[in-house]
Amino acid sequence: MIKRHIAHMLPGVMMLLLVSNSVFAESIEVTFAYIGQADPNPLLGVQQGLDEANLQGQFLNQRYKLDIISNENMSKNDYSKYIAILTSVDSDTFTKLTESLPDMPIFNLSLKDDNLRTSCIRNALHIIPSNSMISDAVKQWKMKKAESDANAYAWHPDFVKFAARDLNKRFKKSANVEMNDYSWAGWAAVKMTSDTVARTNITDPAKLLTYLRTELIFDGQKGSDMNFRETGQLRQPMLLVENNNIVAEAPVRGIAKPPTLDSLGTLNCQK
């Protein structure tokens, strides 16, 4: 069950703040659409992001809402009222969505396919790391520790640095499960959007897309500031995990060349 503590205390506080802040800030309300398949984790992350966006919003007179679109309604739904679409779907569905809504930011929370990156879909925002990012992170670690049997992840529930501890704690408290790559991706997609709306008052999807792809400095609670590659992939550090223990972060220090986030994964479009 999802217990949303923050949401429960919001209405009272919000009423108070709405009154006191309304003189200064124009009210903004934005709505996300979520389209997902079986895995509940991306949606749990999205809901966490939404709670946090509304906590921020109470100080700025901004409200964030979510419509969950069922698979049956997906093709006939009216998408014009959304600021962005958050997806955890199969590759075909994702590609079709990006084609049918070319000015809408479409977040990919679950697909790791490299061809979705190298095809450089202009409105795709891949939060989840690609397969090549994962394999590059493992390769770097094996150069340091050849016998290693590590795997690479976007997130881990034991991650504590860079306030990861705080995010893990509050997610566990509200979702009752531990945060993983997919819930982190859901959280991050909403957070970068609400951060942008808070800073710019942008509510237009096309403007949001441009801002996210060109001006974003995102705090994903992994230490580095994050932004998007030309491929639509979010640059990000990764965690190397052996036997469920975090053993290192990638880019691996002293190994990664170039020693930046761009040492992980493919960078270029196949034109």
Binding site: F59, A163, L167, R199, I217
Partner: peptide, 26 residues
């Protein structure tokens, strides 16, 4: 507040928030 990217300016007389200033990340 680090994750909300704000400085909350509090009036110390009645301990209420007087303004919220958005700044850079964290």
């Amino acid at each position: 507040s680090e994750s909300t990217n704000m400085l909350h300016v509090i009036n110390a007389e009645d301990n209420t928030i007087e303004s919220n200033i958005l700044v850079g990340s964290r």
